[in-house]
């Protein structure tokens, strides 16, 4: 499928036929060596066995049996793996809802309430800059606010709203959720704002002239036409949270399990084939989620 208009291509017919191939070769090589092959290797190694210091070619299903240790026979009780996935999915859902609502509001504000392009660019930059700074630092920066002696507790105790400092503000599900939203809302804002910027303003004007209320315009014009942006943002946010082990590790005080953290722990124990089997399972779950969302998207139309 051609990506550009025919006139554009005609203009370049004098380029040698193989030009595109050598120009695309470095990208293809990097992706093949450091993305495609590693995925293939992971899949293969998930059937291998291992000793204390090396992995051995084999064809066994023990690693998968290990990953789902007594999961089926124990039903309806949930085994560790199912519980971990359930907890991770719960985080996904909560983070997705929060980032969607916040991201949609910010994108709407930037696109429809800001009238000059310069100010819109500056405000969009203000929202994006933190994305270019360190995530670990941005997580640590909650410590002076949420800690036992942090600002929030100082304020609450000072205002006599509570007598004892709250313990659940930091290293808890709450702080993990807060950090996820803090770090990932930008992934919703950018694609949704991009979709919204393509909405023909005359549609909105026409609806208003025909007597539609603000809510009706939002519900019947803006949300349906932002669908692609919402889907792209959702894919980003959900895949980030599904595979996360850093945010949950730092903000959960290394006490909360997640699908990604399980893999990290097994790598730490040098149980590579088991980690590989778990990675394949995680990959399958993520791909199913993406497959559901991707129906709403043609990424290339968005660029």
């Amino acid at each position: 499928m051609p990506l550009l208009s025919t006139t554009d291509k005609q203009a370049m017919t004098h380029y040698a036929r193989w030009t595109s191939y050598w120009q695309a070769a470095p990208l293809a090589a990097v992706l093949l060596l450091f993305f495609v092959l590693p995925l293939v290797v992971t899949f293969i190694v998930s059937f291998w066995s291992y000793t204390g210091y090396s992995i051995e070619p084999d064809f066994i299903f023990d690693n998968y049996r290990d990953a789902f240790d007594r999961c089926i026979v124990a039903l309806p009780d949930l085994c560790t793996t199912f519980r971990t996935y359930l907890s991770t999915l719960r985080f996904c859902l909560a983070v997705w809802l929060l980032t969607l609502v916040i991201g949609f509001i910010i994108a709407y504000y930037l696109t429809f309430e800001i009238r000059t392009t310069t100010i819109r660019l500056v405000l969009a930059l203000v929202c994006t800059i933190p994305f270019w700074t360190s995530n670990v630092i941005r997580m640590i920066s909650w410590v002076p606010l949420l800690g036992r002696n942090g600002l929030v507790n100082q304020a609450l105790v000072g205002a006599a709203i509570i007598d004892q400092p709250l313990d659940w503000l930091l290293y808890s599900n709450f702080s993990v959720l807060l950090a996820f939203v803090h770090l990932n809302t930008v992934f919703m804002i950018v694609p949704i704002a991009n979709s919204m910027s393509r909405i023909d303003r005359s549609l909105v004007e026409a609806a208003r002239d025909a007597g539609a209320t603000g809510w009706q315009i939002l519900l019947h014009i803006i949300i349906p036409l932002s669908k692609t942006g919402i889907a792209i943002g959702s894919i980003f946010v959900i895949t980030v949270v599904m595979g996360d082990f850093i945010t949950i590790g730092i903000m959960g005080g290394q006490q909360i399990a997640s699908a990604g953290k399980v893999i990290q722990t097994q790598i730490g124990a040098l149980q590579f084939p088991i980690a590989a089997a778990n990675a394949v399972v995680l990959l399958a779950v993520v791909l199913m989620i993406i497959a559901t969302l991707i129906r709403y998207i043609d990424i290339r139309k968005e660029l």
Binding site: L37, P38, V45, F272, L282, I299
Partner: peptide
Amino acid sequence: YTAIASLTLPSIIVSLGIALEFQI
């Protein structure tokens, strides 16, 4: 789409894959 996949799939999987590749 491979490039898009590389952006989207969980980093822990990519990281593990590269580690396994180099171990082999």
